[in-house]
Design a protein around this nucleic acid. Structure first.
Length: 283
DNA sequence: GGGATAACCTGATAGC
DNA sequence: TGCTATCAGGTTATCC
């Protein structure tokens, strides 16, 4: 899926079309994505004003004037596409409906926001804004890696005694929220830690190294507009370009980019996911 | 309880 | 051209 930087990029792209604006019409074209949509979702959205757009982990949260919050998750292939806004000017020129356009929001002002998701691993739900933190998908999430609650003490405590590989531990959203397969690979490379190492064997010096690297990789990726592989687009349909900065992800058999290292990037599978790393300089 | 695996679903790509 | 196998940015349910 879009990981944290992609979701943040999408959120920012949605702001001009949605923030402060009323949803004039909501069309829901199927009963479910990963889970059934909440009852009467179209009716509950229609007429609501979007007070603000927040992000928690890989979720976008739209706070509505009705006292409810719309939760949006893009899954692996979800896209939020905006049409009808160009350079701050609104128009009513929208592309023809496409396959897998599941939810369409026609916004006050003329913009249209379309949720398109081929694989349907995405989700949408409505909840009382006051009870957001208790939502089953949000309640158990770890801290935001770019927030104040994520620090060495927290990470060290989450890794301590764990017999799972560090790769899996960083992917576990209970430990830290928002990292996905790409950015964990990139983080471990920059930290020169092998993805195969057990979490409990990562030293405190390495934890100290990991925290700022996690922040750095995510911040750089957000600045680049995220990474575009197969499905991901920014809300305006543009590609992100952080993928050009990948040092190990999807670079199997390439020379290791670490200066002075003569290693070759390897691929292995851990808990069903590809891990890319340099066996020579990641220890 | 912790950790690994299968499952959800479609599309793109590689190989024959 | 066309078939088959494999893989994909995530998360949950299930099994050992």
């Amino acid at each position: 899926m879009p990981e944290l930087p992609e979701v943040e990029t999408v959120r920012m792209g949605l702001l001009p079309a949605m923030e402060g604006r009323r949803i004039e019409k909501a069309a829901v074209n199927r009963p479910d994505l990963r889970w059934p949509f909440p009852p009467r979702m179209a009716e509950r959205l229609t007429g609501a004003q979007v007070l603000g757009l927040r992000r928690r982990s890989k979720y976008i949260l739209a706070d509505l004037s009705t006292g409810e919050t719309l939760l949006i998750h893009l899954g692996m292939s979800g896209r939020m596409l905006v049409s009808g806004v160009q350079a701050g000017q609104f128009h009513h020129d929208h592309p023809a409906p496409a396959k897998h356009d599941h939810v369409v929001l026609d916004m006050e002002g003329g913009a249209r926001v379309t949720f398109n998701d081929a694989r349907r691993f995405g989700a949408m739900d409505l909840m009382a804004t006051a009870a957001c933190d208790a939502h089953p998908l949000l309640a158990a999430l770890g801290p935001e890696p770019l927030g104040n609650d994520f620090h060495e003490t927290h990470l060290a405590a989450r890794l301590k005694g764990r017999a799972t590989p560090i790769k899996s531990a960083l992917l576990d959203q209970h430990n830290i929220a928002g990292l996905g397969n790409i950015y964990v690979c990139e983080v471990l490379f920059r930290a020169q830690i092998s993805p195969l190492r057990l979490a409990r064997d990562v030293t405190s010096a390495e934890v100290v190294r990991l925290v700022p690297i996690i922040r750095e990789v995510l911040t750089e990726a957000i600045a680049a507009g995220g990474s575009s592989l197969k499905d991901y687009r920014q809300a305006d349909g543009e590609l992100g370009y952080f993928q050009h900065t990948f040092r190990v992800y999807d670079r199997e058999d390439s020379p290791c980019p670490t200066p002075g290292c003569s290693g070759t990037i390897a691929r292995t599978v851990q808990s069903g996911r590809s891990s890319f790393y340099c066996p020579a300089c990641q220890r």
